[in-house]
């Protein structure tokens, strides 16, 4: 990218490039066709850095690139063996801390967690499964909240609100008992398009739009066509 007034110079994996001032590392990398994996991050919503997938190394320190702004001369390590190993471990930990059974999940093929597992070549998690006992809450007329698959990324909490800004989703409990629940009152009158958007914005299959199952054929799903990240990498 050319140097202009609002550009600064950074280096990602030894490659020198000019990026927009004030952008985060994730955005700056994207601008240059470099993919840094994210999971909790959702374009248009404030980054929260809760999943740590976008961890990069700056001056030998691990930093989350969705919350760190670029600075002049910054040297960033991204696609390294060490960092990819960290990312793979995060994915594995997410798999073992929930009950993720891809074969019968409606989100399979459109799921970001699954797509990342493929990208980082996870065959089987190296950590023991915790098989938590989680509920399937189907009491709302539009949505099923499948707690077994929630990775607590907060994307639904941040992005699904009514016209007054009220949140449809919220945290309940703490620690290993933490769950993301749908407000029972708001949930009862949730408009159709918002319910569909909630399912779409969830990176995994934890929010299911009721009675929509498997109507998108295998082979036509998002990550059937191209692996996660390639939409950025192919867009140089």
């Amino acid at each position: 990218m050319e140097k202009t007034n609002n550009k600064i110079r950074i280096t990602i994996d030894g490659k020198r490039t000019y990026v927009t001032k004030g952008s985060t590392i994730v955005e700056a990398a994207k601008e240059n066709g470099i993919y840094i994996p994210t999971l909790c991050h959702f374009e248009g919503a404030d980054p929260k850095a809760c999943c740590r997938m976008c961890t990069v190394k700056i001056n030998n320190r691990m930093m989350t690139s969705c919350t760190t702004p670029v600075t002049e001369g910054m040297e960033i390590e991204n696609d390294t063996e060490e960092l990819n190993e960290v990312r793979k471990s995060i994915i594995e930990l997410l798999f073992v801390s929930g009950n993720h059974f891809c074969p019968a999940c409606e989100k399979s093929g459109n799921c970001e967690l699954q797509a990342l597992a493929y990208r980082y070549k996870m065959l089987v998690p190296r950590f023991p499964y915790s098989f938590p006992r989680k509920e399937v809450d189907a009491s709302s007329p539009k949505i099923i909240k499948e707690q077994n698959r929630c990775i607590a990324c907060k994307r639904c909490i941040k992005t699904i609100r009514d016209e007054h800004g009220k949140h449809y989703f919220a945290y309940k409990n703490r620690g290993q008992h933490l769950e993301v629940i749908l407000d029972p009152v708001l949930g009862d009158t949730m408009p159709d398009d918002l319910a569909k958007k909630a399912m779409e914005n969830c990176p995994v299959g934890s929010i299911l739009y009721k009675e929509k199952g498997f109507d998108q054929p295998i082979g036509t799903r998002k990550y059937d066509k191209q692996p996660i990240g390639s939409e950025i990498e192919n867009n140089v």
């Binding site: 074969p103 019968a104 399937v136 299911l208 009675e211 199952g213």
Partner: peptide, 14 residues
């Protein structure tokens, strides 16, 4: 049991 009904054709074929 306890699964959404539309999952059954995909689940039981396993």
């Amino acid at each position: 049991q306890g699964r959404p009904y539309w999952e059954a054709p995909v689940l039981v074929q396993r």
